[in-house]
């Protein structure tokens, strides 16, 4: 399974970016090969509006089946749901830590947005 983690840097030891739509990067992690690579979220960061929707399109195009992030607003959640991508919220620490908390069962996919729009 391909997991996209919102991050503030390009390596797996970067801190998780608590924002989804305007996250600096997405670190893509493949659970089968344990390989990862980072993609910059320039379109989301620079979007005047609808950054979460834009980010959902980006991770969908990258083939992610799951997103791990800090928070997810209502528009982004609707878009991810339509794209068939599950979203885990409440992640913190590094990308690697967030992934192991998810694989260890400490973090579960969310059933709804956990924040209002434009929360930060």
């Amino acid at each position: 399974m391909k997991i996209a983690v919102t991050a503030q840097g390009v390596t797996p030891d970067s801190p998780v970016d608590p924002r989804f739509g305007r996250a600096a990067t997405f670190v893509l992690f493949d659970t089968e090969t344990s390989e990862s690579h980072a993609v910059h979220n320039d379109q989301g960061v620079n979007a005047s509006g609808g950054a979460g929707i834009q980010a959902a399109e980006t991770v969908s195009r990258l083939g992610a089946e799951l997103v791990i992030t800090g928070h997810c607003g209502p528009k982004a959640f609707r878009a991810l749901e339509a794209a068939g991508i599950k979203v885990v919220v409440g992640a913190a620490g590094t990308v690697t830590e967030a992934i192991s908390r998810f694989t260890g069962g400490a973090l579960q996919p969310a059933s709804a947005a956990d924040t209002d729009e434009h929360w930060s």
């Binding site: 950054a51 834009q54 959902a56 878009a79 339509a82």
Partner: peptide, 13 residues
């Protein structure tokens, strides 16, 4: 350009 309509190979949102 404004992400007001988006399609994931589905009926647009």
């Amino acid at each position: 350009e404004f992400n007001a309509i988006v399609s994931f190979k589905t009926e647009p949102l």
